[in-house]
């Protein structure tokens, strides 16, 4: 039987990336033979939830190199691939896993597809291009295993109950890779964690003009209560808010009940990160901005006037 593997990253706090469970769920629909390579210190802990989501076996690579030089995990996965010959490798599309996938394709000579949003078969994947306006199906050819990077939140994770066999593994990494070391860390945003789970996301763009503009959004989010603040890349690149708030192709994918875009034009690369929202509202002074075309409700006007008044209106309603 064809075997499908998931590469599952474990972060510095020991948390398993949630997309790993989404991918296990999808893998189960393609084959019964699902296995996971979990990478990062504390990865053994992840075997529980992975087994619960259908992994029969979890290889554990508990090594700090997974964070110092993320691509190093490719050496471990490649060794396992040579021994067990899976048909398909699925990785969540994160910066670290792109490093792993990129190095894997060099080692294995296998095809690598990025930005996938669905798997149709062991050798067929789907992606969305041009901001999700076109759906493209791609046949994956060449030697197995095919490697596919899948956008987080493409599937719902569904537990099935089950326990995985846990196998520890190690690897001789090249000296050059071992020489790459994280020597210091700077935390910038703790609030960002709730962005992906918030029922309301209020995202700000270039139209906010600076960090002060984002203070208006924070106030609005506070008034709503269940809301988190996000941003377009233009706002992140300008240094107004940290990268962890970025929504879109190179940032987070959010699927809230309500997405409120404030001073965001709706570029293709932004839209792929938020088009799954149940309701889209946009505040923009330009009635012709692309975001207005996809919004359920578009409000034309100056955000600096509208946002404070909206905050007031919501406070008034929630007070009564």
């Amino acid at each position: 039987m064809a075997s499908v593997w998931v590469v599952a990253p474990v972060d510095r706090s020991g948390a398993l990336h949630p997309a790993s469970l989404e991918l296990c769920t999808k893998a189960r629909s393609l084959t019964e033979d699902v296995a996971v390579v979990a990478v990062g210190p504390g990865a053994a802990e992840a075997a529980g939830p992975l087994g619960d989501h259908g992994a029969r076996r979890v290889w554990v690579w508990d090594d700090t190199a997974a964070h110092d030089h993320p691509g190093s995990a490719a050496a471990v996965v490649a060794d396992l691939v040579a021994e067990h010959r899976p048909s398909l490798l699925l990785l969540p599309m994160t910066y670290d896993m792109r490093d792993v996938a990129g190095r894997l394709q060099a080692r294995l000579g296998s095809t690598l597809m990025s930005n996938a949003t669905d798997l149709l078969d062991l050798d067929r994947a789907r992606t969305e291009i041009f901001g999700g306006t076109k759906i493209v199906d791609v046949a994956l050819e060449g030697p197995e295993p095919r490697i596919v990077l899948v956008r987080p939140r493409s599937f719902e994770a569904e537990p099935v109950g089950g326990t995985a066999e846990v196998v520890e593994c190690s690897s001789d990494l090249p000296e050059l890779a071992r020489a790459v070391r994280v020597s210091g860390r700077r935390a910038e945003a703790a609030a960002a964690a709730k962005l992906e789970d918030a029922r309301v996301v209020i995202a700000g763009g270039r139209g906010l003009g600076g960090p002060e503009g984002f203070a208006l959004l924070e106030e609005l989010a506070g008034a709503i209560g269940t809301a988190a603040v996000g941003a377009s890349r233009a706002a992140v690149d300008a240094g107004w808010v940290p990268y962890s708030l970025q929504i879109g192709q190179t940032g987070k994918t959010v699927k809230p009940d309500v997405y409120l875009a404030v001073g965001i034009s709706g570029a293709l690369q932004h839209v792929v990160g938020m088009k799954g929202a149940k309701r889209i509202v946009a505040i923009n002074k330009d009635a012709e901005a692309p975001i207005m075309r996809m919004a359920d409700l578009g409000v034309v006007g100056d955000l600096f006037e509208i946002v404070p008044r909206l905050t007031e209106e919501i406070r008034r309603r929630t007070a009564s």
């Binding site: 095809t111 076109k134 493209v136 199906d137 075309r293 409700l297 034309v300």
Partner: peptide, 30 residues
């Protein structure tokens, strides 16, 4: 190349909603 596009389809276009001005808009968002 080891990837071949086998089908391209248009995603259903966004339904598109209403465009309103600020006066009406604030209450409508709420």
């Amino acid at each position: 190349p080891t990837q071949r596009v086998v089908a391209v389809a248009d995603a259903p276009p966004p339904a598109g909603g209403e465009i309103v001005d600020a006066e009406v808009g604030i209450a409508r968002i709420a």
